[in-house]
């Protein structure tokens, strides 16, 4: 069983990393031939970094759009960030100071993450417009995240697993040393679901995470009059003339 999970994890990580890098490479390699920032837009690179930071950290545009979606979405994402960082303790020895510091917050973030996810799902289920645009995969994605969160919370608050052994297993994995994984059903479920998430990531709407950084309406500087912007394929049109 430990071996099976090891193979699964290696494969999932491979798919995740290669798939994601490949996707990012495609985005980066695809030209943006025209200046299309949604204005008013920053006129300097520094300004663009700030705009992007506000977008990624505070979900500025979503805030303008809809407070319910924003609050649930932000709660979920912020909690997810904390929870993920907290999980670094299972991959580092000794545990980094700041990881140890956020540990208690990370635990409660599991609860707020669940709240956020449920809020988003309620919206998807009961707001007519959002239900209309939802595909089965949209619901399944929420279900997957909720299942990961719930299985994690159960291990935290109800049926503890042997975290020392789990940590040993993952530290081992990182050194290509397959150790024994506690055969605990909840843990198995949790890990299975996480590998699923990793595999699905590069092929699904989760690509919004890298995508936002490549969005021309957000990442372009508003200086078209001051500097000539020309993509390679557009430049060719001029040389053919």
């Amino acid at each position: 069983m430990s071996m099976l999970f090891a193979i699964l994890f290696y494969l999932a990580t491979l798919v995740f990393v290669v798939g994601l890098l490949q996707r990012i490479r495609t985005y980066a390699a695809t030209p943006a031939p025209l200046k299309i920032p949604t204005t008013p837009a920053p006129t300097t690179t520094g300004g663009v970094v700030l705009r992007m930071t506000r977008e990624v950290v505070f979900f500025e545009s979503l805030f303008k759009a809809n407070l319910w979606t924003w609050s649930m979405g932000w709660l979920f994402h912020a909690s997810l960030a904390l929870v993920t960082l907290r999980h670094l303790r299972y991959f580092t020895e000794p545990v980094w100071g700041w990881v140890a510091f956020i540990q208690p917050f990370g635990i409660y973030a599991g609860i707020t993450m669940l709240l956020g996810l449920c809020g988003l799902w309620v919206r998807r289920l009961f707001v007519e417009r959002i239900r209309y645009i939802s595909t089965p995969s949209d619901h399944l994605m929420l279900l997957l995240l909720i299942a990961i969160t719930v299985s994690g919370l159960l291990m935290q608050f109800v049926a503890h697993t042997d975290v020392v052994a789990v940590k040993g297993y993952f530290i081992g994995l990182m050194h290509l040393d397959i150790r024994v994984l506690p055969s605990d059903l909840l843990l198995m479920l949790h890990l299975m679901l996480v590998t699923t998430l990793l595999v699905v990531f590069p092929f699904s709407k989760l690509l919004h995470a890298p995508g936002v950084f490549f969005s021309p309406t957000r990442n372009q500087t508003d200086n078209p009059r001051e500097k000539r912007h020309l993509s390679a394929w557009a430049a060719k049109l001029e040389s053919e003339k």
Binding site: R23, T26, Y27, T30, S61, L62, A65, N66, T69, G73, R123, R124, V127, R129, I130, I133, S134, T135, D138, K205, L207, H208, G211, V212, F214, S215, P216
Partner: peptide, 12 residues
Amino acid sequence: KVYMDACVHCGA
């Protein structure tokens, strides 16, 4: 390219 991939159907 990015817009075809990135939408999460949030409804904003």
